[in-house]
Design a protein around this nucleic acid. Structure first.
Lengths: 155, 155
DNA sequence: TCGACATACATAGGACTCCTATGTAAAATA
DNA sequence: TATTTTACATAGGAGTCCTATGTATGTCGA
């Protein structure tokens, strides 16, 4: 019988012992940062379009449903966003030679340019604040990015 | 003279020397994480309402415009969200004794309960992935949260 | 080979988010 | 006290994103 057995425990105060409030804190702060940066970048490109372009760039010629999965979205949502992006000439769709139901989506040169512009607008919005951080703090952010990517790619 | 000094550097590849692609990378990954977590938490509470409750909790009895500023939002947006939250009994508004135009918003007990539930749902959504990380990785995230908070509070 | 089921995408409808423009009343100021 | 400013409310519209459902193609077993 270990001492722990005889000590009455207080009720569990966290549903997930070991991680504590890390999850909610992390989500709260990223939501704030997301809104902060979005409101400053003054993007002319709708956010969902920008995310779509980044997704297409990342997984190359891809199907609608693959893009939906990458973006934690749904197929109908991506279908509609793809229609807009195609109309704007930002992506190109070709029939999938191996599957008559599917099409493959890829960026056009225009789309690549738009994506580049979006990224530099975001960089510009955030840069002044990043410059005020210490090198150590920036390093923490860099490493955190890698951690979150690993967390997201877990499945 | 250190060896590093004698090594020819490649040309700057980013338009923001010193910060590199940190800004866009950071924003891209947090947007992904935000969507991922939101889609899994299966919240019954709309996201904007949850953010509002957290804001009210954070700055206590507060005015509409103070809440808007905290959330990088606008006064009309917060006004509407407050109306919903008040109808649901999540916040209470009292006249500001020192200013007839303003009212002070605070959480009700119900609102506090809702906020607690939202946080535990988010914690539960993220916990399995956080548990797969190493202690070092979780520590990086904890420190990154503090860094981002400092960055956001810069003004 | 044909029917049944699965898969990939399209369409429809609705809830939610959030902005700009503008109105109203109270406060502050000249 | 007249003017301007401030705090909040209202209106309208663009965007986001989901579930439900329809259609066509692919796949598989009888």
């Amino acid at each position: 019988m270990t001492p722990a057995d005889s000590v009455p425990r207080p009720p569990e105060r966290q549903s997930v012992p070991g991680t504590g409030a890390l999850g909610p804190d992390l989500l709260a702060v990223i939501a704030r940062l997301d809104r902060w940066a979005t409101s400053r970048a003054g993007l002319e490109v709708p956010a969902a379009q920008a995310r779509l372009l980044a997704a297409v760039e990342q997984i190359g010629p891809a199907r609608t449903s693959d893009l939906a999965r990458l973006d934690s979205s749904t197929q109908p949502t991506i279908t509609v966003q793809l229609q807009r992006a195609e109309q704007d000439g930002w992506v190109r769709r070709t029939a999938d030679p191996s599957d008559g139901r599917a099409s493959l989506v890829e960026l056009t040169d225009t789309g690549r340019g738009v994506l580049r512009d979006v990224r530099s607008a975001r960089a510009a919005a955030l840069a002044p604040r990043l410059d005020e951080l210490t090198a150590t703090e920036r390093d923490v952010l860099t490493r955190a990015i890698a951690v979150v990517e690993r967390l997201l790619d877990g499945s």
